[in-house]
């Protein structure tokens, strides 16, 4: 956890970029063009910056999956497939330092890459990466897990293996991510067959918004306006990402307009194109079960 948590007053030596230069998290550092900020790493920042080998799960879905699995320090979680390791970082950070993540993938090159990334990020002690096809060979551990997560094409073929992976005296939570509803149907049938309870399927549609200044005008003013005058009074974008110069102009304009009438603002979706589907999340719970004493 050295790179993730620096306890010496947030000072950190960055060997790769600046030799022998110390800076504090949150500091502004000059670069060849302008400046940059150095931020403390986290799972959701990693999700936004990692090099993608596969389609990944993004922060809102990852967040919900962690809550549905009841992940906390000390939890033992099995995951398949690993993919690019986006969710793996969320899981590993949430169950550290006492828990463990067993992540399985069918692609050996992919699993090795994520394994080295987790090690570099200081999460190697709480993760085990396994090259395995869980639909055929099952999971690396049995009678151990508090949670199982699946993001594979045929999750219904793995439900019986998942049941074996759960700790029998504690039971646990099962979550699967599937883009297609037909996959969900097959999975729900398999879960019912294996006596899972609280089987629920949900769909999460996150949305990003930004603040917009509203510039209103009356019909009379509009008819008196020429096309040239119209431009300065269009809606002013005060979202992040604006250049500093433009921000100053906007501020001046806003102050000028505030003298005339109170400024109105609203929230609009931004960017205009956003995901309308990522996948269905199916979650279920396995009650503690003891095969030796079946009292049906």
């Amino acid at each position: 956890m050295h790179k993730w948590r620096c306890r010496i007053k947030y000072f950190k030596k960055c060997d790769n970029c600046y030799n022998n230069i110390y800076f504090r998290y949150g500091s502004r550092i000059s670069a060849t063009a302008g400046y940059i900020y150095a931020l403390r790493p986290s799972a959701d920042l990693w999700t936004r910056t990692l090099l993608r080998q596969t389609q990944i799960l993004y922060s809102p879905d990852c967040s919900l999956i962690l809550t549905l699995l009841d992940v906390r320090p000390g939890a033992i979680i099995c995951e398949s497939g690993t993919g690019s390791g986006s969710l793996s970082h969320f899981l590993a950070l949430a169950l550290a330092p006492d828990g463990h993540l067993y992540t399985h993938d069918i692609d050996e090159v992919r699993i090795k890459k994520v394994e080295s990334e987790l090690r570099v990020h200081g999460l190697g002690a709480v993760t085990t990466c396994i090259h395995r096809d869980v639909t055929e060979d099952g999971f690396f551990v049995e009678n151990a897990c508090d949670g199982v997560f699946l993001d594979i094409p045929s999750p219904w073929l793995t439900v019986s293996h998942a049941k074996k992976a759960f700790n029998r005296s504690r039971g646990g939570n099962f979550v699967s991510f599937s883009p297609c509803i037909e996959q969900v149907q097959k999975l729900c049938d398999a879960l019912k067959r294996e006596a899972f309870i609280q089987i629920e399927t949900m769909e999460l549609l996150p949305r990003k918004l930004k603040v917009m200044n509203i510039s209103e005008t009356t019909l009379k003013e509009f008819s008196l306006m020429t096309a040239a005058e119209k431009k300065p009074k269009t809606m002013v974008n005060s979202g992040s990402g604006e250049r500093k110069r433009k921000i100053d102009e906007d501020t001046a304009e806003a102050m000028q307009r505030e003298e005339q009438l109170p400024q109105k603002r609203t929230l609009l979706p931004s960017p205009p194109s956003q995901p309308t589907h990522t996948g269905y999340l199916t979650c279920a719970k396995l009650l503690p079960f003891f095969d030796e004493t079946s009292d049906t």
């Binding site: 809102p60 089987i199 399927t201 949900m202 769909e203 999460l204 549609l205 996150p206 949305r207 918004l209």
Partner: peptide, 13 residues
Amino acid sequence: VQIHDAFLRSHTV
């Protein structure tokens, strides 16, 4: 500085 909201719905299967 980012603003988020979300829509969540359940499905009958």
